[in-house]
Design a protein around this nucleic acid. Structure first.
Lengths: 344, 344
DNA sequence: CTGAAAGCGCTTACAG
DNA sequence: CTGAAAGCGCTTACAG
C-alpha cells in the first residue's frame, strides 16, 4: 500500500498507460471517443493506484463538483445565544445531509448574517466550490437571495415567496404548507368552542409568518367570529418578545380562552410568562408550530413540518439532469400526543 | 452594483491598481513587503469591486482554505434505515457547525461507509478541499483512521482509543467520559439496592462500548457483587439485537432487577420487548445512555454527553495556530427528569 | 480515436 | 518593495 504515498496525478497515470493526459482526462469524464483498449488500461491503472483527480484543478478547469451548499440566514448567530429558529434549521440540515449522501453528494453548511457572508457565498458559487445550493430562513425581499435566484446557479429556496414568472433560471421554491397547518390547528381550537384565541405572530417579513397570520384571520372570519386586534401579538419568532407580550396581556387582563403561538420557540416564552403569573396553563388549550424537541414532552400541542420530505425533494431537484423552475408545498402533521411525537 | 456581473480576477485588480498580480497577491495574503501606498490602493479597489479570490485557484496554488470536514462512520447509511447512532452524530454535527461559524470556518459533512468513501475523503485532504477534519463513530483499529492519524493532516478523533506516542502529527483525541458516566449510573442503581442489573453492551469494537462495559464490571466488583454473565448482552448499539436479546431473557425467565442499556437507541428495543411480554416496565429501574430526543420524554433515565463542549474543543484545536497531539475527556451529566432534560 | 497546447486563477521563489 | 515567470492539476477545443 505504499503506492499511495507517492503523489499521483493525471500525468503519471498517462505515462504509466503510455497515452497523453488528454486521453486520461477523457476516460475520467466518460467521453465516448476513447478506444476500449486504452480505456480499460487506464481504468485499471487508476484503480491500482487509487488515483482520484484533484477537485480544485477540475473545478478550476470548469467541471462541476458534488458539493451542495446549505445556507441558513441567522442574523443573531454571532452572539453565541441560541437563535430563534436554530433547532428547526438544524433538523432540516440533518435530513439534507443524509439525502445528499444517498445521491453521492456532500453538504457544505454555512450561515449568513452579514454582507461579508453573502460575498463569501457568492464566491463559493462563482468559483464552483458548491455546484448548487439550498437557502433557508431568509426574509422576504432579501436582495442577496434575489440575486442568487436571478443568477445562473441552480438553487432551492425554502419558505420564500416569489413570483415564479420573475425567475428565469432553474429554481425550486419549496414551502411548508403553513397556511394549511395553521388552519388545521385553528379548526381544533374553534371546534372546541373557543372564541378568543390569542395569537403570537412570527416574523411577517418571512413567508411563514405571513401565511400563519393569514390562516388565523381567515379561520375566524369563516366562522363569523369577531377578530379582536388586541389578541394579535407580533413577536417575530422571538421567545423573549413573546414572553414580554404575554406578560402585558396578563397585566392588562385582556381575556383570551386559548393560545396559538406560531412557533414552538415563542411558545416557551409565552409559557414562562404564564407560569410567573401563576396561570394554570396545563388546562389551557395551547398550540405551537414546528414540533421542536421539547414541545410535546412539555405537554403542548404543535404541528410538524415534514422536513424529511422537503429535504428529499430539494436534493432530488438539485441532482436531476433537467429541471424547470417551479413551486412545491409539503404538508404538515398535527402532533397532539406523545404517540404522534414518537411516530414523527 | 452592475460592477459585480463583470468577471473580476486578480489580473483585473492589478491593472486597475497599476501593479502586478504578484503585488495584489501579496496584499491578499498579508505579506509585509508592500508599500503602504500600493496596499491601500489595492485594498480600496478590492473592496469597491467586491473581489473575492478564487478558492480553487488559491488551494491549487498551495493555500489552506477555511473548510473543516466532519466525517461520520455509518456503515448502514445506504439502506435508508435510520442507523443506530445517527441522532447522536447529528446532534454533534449541529454544534460543530455553529462553533465553526464563530471561528469563520465552514463545515463539510460527509459519511463514510466503504472504501470509495475513504478514497474520496483522503482526496479531500490531499487536494485541500478541507483544511482539517473531525472523525467520529469509527471502530477501533480502523486502518483508514490510522492512516489519517499518521498523515500530515490536522485531525480531531472523537471517541477513539490510540496510544498517543504512536501519533507523530497534530491530533486531538477527544473522548466522552464513558467510564465515568456509566459509573455514575451504576452508583444510582446499586445505591438503591439492586443486585442484578441487566446490561446491554454497545459495540465493543468502539471505544465507548468497551469503556461502558468496563465500568459496569468494575462497579459490581467494587461492591463485591457477583457478576452473572447471563446478565450481560452484547447487542452492539443495535436496537433490533437488543430487542431480540431482551425477549430471550424473558423467555428463559432469567431474573434481573434493573436495566442499563449502554445506548438509548438499544433501550427502545429493550422496551419494545418488555411491552410485548406484558412487563410493567414503568416501575423498573431503567437507564440508557446518550440523552436522545425521546428517551426522557418516554419516562426513562439516561446520561448526556456534553456535545457542545466536545464540539467547542474540537474546533478550537483545529483553528489554533500551534497545537500538540493530546487526549482530552469531556464529562457527562445524569438526566433523571424532565427538568434535567430541559436544562441540557 | 489521439496528442500538443492553451487556459482556469491563483501563489511563490527568484532576480532585481 | 516589485515584476516576470513557473507551477499547482486538471479540461477542452483544435488539428490531425
Amino acid at each position: 500500500m505504499n503506492i499511495e504515498n507517492k503523489k499521483i496525478d493525471s500525468t503519471k497515470i498517462a505515462e504509466l498507460a503510455g497515452v497523453s493526459r488528454s486521453t486520461v482526462s477523457r476516460v475520467l469524464n466518460n467521453h465516448p471517443n476513447v478506444s476500449s483498449k486504452n480505456r480499460e488500461k487506464i481504468l485499471k491503472i487508476i484503480d491500482e493506484y487509487n488515483y482520484i483527480p484533484n477537485l480544485n484543478a477540475q473545478t478550476l478547469a470548469g467541471k462541476r463538483n458534488s458539493v451542495i451548499g446549505i445556507f441558513i440566514y441567522e442574523p443573531n448567530m454571532s452572539s453565541r445565544t441560541t437563535s430563534m429558529d436554530t433547532a428547526y434549521f438544524m433538523n432540516f440540515t440533518d435530513t439534507v445531509v443524509k439525502e445528499a449522501f444517498l445521491e453521492n453528494h456532500q453538504i457544505l453548511v454555512d450561515y449568513v448574517k452579514d454582507f461579508d457572508d453573502e460575498k463569501r457565498i457568492e464566491a463559493f458559487f462563482k468559483n464552483g466550490n458548491v455546484s448548487s445550493g439550498i437557502f433557508i430562513g431568509f426574509l422576504r425581499e432579501s436582495p442577496f437571495l434575489e440575486r442568487m435566484i436571478k443568477s445562473e446557479y441552480r438553487v432551492v429556496v425554502v419558505d420564500y415567496a416569489k413570483n415564479i414568472l420573475e425567475t428565469a433560471q432553474e429554481t425550486l421554491y419549496i414551502n411548508t404548507d403553513d397556511y394549511g397547518g395553521t388552519v388545521s390547528i385553528m379548526k381544533k381550537i374553534l371546534d372546541k368552542g373557543f372564541k378568543r384565541p390569542l395569537i403570537f405572530l412570527g416574523d411577517l417579513k418571512k413567508l411563514s409568518g405571513f401565511e400563519r397570520e393569514r390562516a388565523y384571520r381567515d379561520s375566524l372570519k369563516n366562522r363569523d367570529i369577531h377578530i379582536d386586534e388586541n389578541l394579535i401579538l407580533s413577536s417575530e419568532y422571538c421567545k423573549e418578545k413573546a414572553y414580554k407580550y404575554m406578560l402585558q396581556i396578563l397585566e392588562k387582563d385582556i381575556k383570551f380562552d386559548s393560545i396559538f403561538s406560531s412557533s414552538d420557540n415563542m411558545l416557551f416564552g409565552v409559557v414562562k410568562a404564564l407560569k410567573e403569573f401563576g396561570v394554570d396553563y396545563e388546562k389551557l388549550e395551547i398550540w405551537g408550530f414546528d414540533n421542536l424537541k421539547y414541545t410535546v414532552p412539555m405537554g403542548f400541542k404543535t404541528v410538524s413540518p415534514m422536513l424529511k420530505e422537503t429535504a428529499k425533494k430539494s436534493i432530488k431537484f438539485l441532482v436531476s439532469e433537467f429541471v424547470e423552475t417551479r413551486v412545491e408545498y409539503t404538508k404538515t402533521k398535527l402532533i397532539e400526543s406523545m404517540l404522534d411525537y414518537f411516530e414523527d
